[in-house]
Nucleic acid binder design. Structure first.
Lengths: 218, 218
DNA sequence: CATCGTTTCAAACGACCGTTTGAATTTTGG
DNA sequence: CCAAAATTCAAACGGTCGTTTGAAACGATG
């Protein structure tokens, strides 16, 4: 039970890299298995199909991240005072972003993949994301609701949607911003990004609900 | 000069639809031309290659949106008082989101495509986006800077990055949120989304700059 | 050491890909 | 109205795709 696992890992690593770099359709099994240094048939032998390989690539990383999120959230609940909004946001955002520092767990490559697949409404993967979201959203929503008791639930949902957008976009794009800012913004400064993101998002979450404008009620 | 333009338009419409639905690699020229009801060779005849077809699909819509953005921004400058942050954000965000209502200009289909391609670091398209961004970013950055004189430029760049993330994610995903909110959030209520987004983003932009935490200065 | 289930491998499968060709057809301009 | 240019079309090009096959190599177990 040593060699097979080594092959599996090699394929998953290569798939993670190439799916992130070229997208699901853009990366071929031949490129993946050749990068992994294994025969092409090994991919179908171990994972059944290309789509299940993508699935395995995602679940390998997402699980631990979500566990870390829930742990951080649980720790907040154990304090004497009610959880602060900033703490909840950090519990939601930091575990995903910190992956970038931990190259052993896939690092920035997986961030890119996740941000990319998230924008990719690949039918079959919707189910995977929805089920993951239920785990996370189901726990974070009440926490947010408690930290923002005056915010109507519908507004909260929209704002969580915005939060996810900031997270996904920042995760998907690690280098573009560095270029357009001419080096002023450092995408490797994970803790700085978390700090900035939490500040930005907390303010957005606390924003007063905008009244319906001049336009009709619709 | 009638039939050729009709063919061009049919191909662009079909390409827009299928690129949005399945991604660049996922949509084939055969599917596109067949949807358009034209011969497959017409695609290469009129556009040269698949990549240039994608390019044409994007530029057809982006140009007018950016013009509208700059117009709205210019109008703000003509008022007696200094432009308000909310106005600038709306000028940046609303023209793109309002595409969703205007089915004649591609509607939600193009929103999806744009959000998708944006998350797709397709090498060759980076240039196109960077050049579009220079047009827009070059004009909006000073406006933001004037509305937020105390915000350091580096922080401003990060926050513009966050703004783009919210925009891209909301544009790319039109229906997912409706499902997970069990219908409570209506993705067709464009003006409501603009209102909520501007409120959220304005608060985020105005957030006090978070001091560096306990962690080292890095 | 022989056995049997597991894993690897080269080769091939049919399907679809983006692109090109050259002849037919339509449109244009004198 | 007719030559010339622009456009459409069926067909084929060489390649690559995801997947399957059946035999060879391997590993654990008795």
């Amino acid at each position: 039970m040593k060699a097979p696992d080594k092959t599996r890992k090699a394929i998953l690593d290569a798939a993670e890299l190439l799916f992130a770099e070229r997208g699901y359709e853009g990366a071929s099994l031949r490129q993946i298995t050749s990068t992994a240094g294994v025969n092409i048939a090994a991919a179908n032998y171990h994972f059944g199909s290309k789509e299940e390989l993508l699935r395995a690539t995602l679940t390998r990383r997402i699980g631990p991240v979500n566990e870390e999120r829930l742990e951080m959230l649980a720790e907040l609940g154990e304090r004497r005072s009610a959880p602060k909004l900033e703490g909840i946001l950090e519990a939601l955002v930091a575990p995903a972003l910190r992956l970038s520092r931990d190259q052993k767990r896939g690092g920035r490559v997986f961030m890119k993949l996740l941000g990319r697949i998230f924008a990719d409404p690949g039918e079959r993967l919707q189910a995977l994301f929805l089920e993951q979201f239920d785990q996370i959203g189901g726990r974070f929503m009440p926490a947010f609701q408690r930290a923002l008791p005056k915010l109507p639930p519908v507004e909260l949902m929209w704002r969580m949607h915005f939060v996810i957008g900031v997270m996904a976009h920042t995760m998907a794009d690690t280098q573009k911003l560095k270029h357009i800012s001419r080096g002023a913004c450092d995408p490797d400064d994970t803790e700085g990004i978390v700090r900035r993101m939490v500040a930005f998002l907390a303010a957005g979450m606390r924003a007063p609900v905008a009244p319906e404008g001049k336009g009709g009620v619709k």
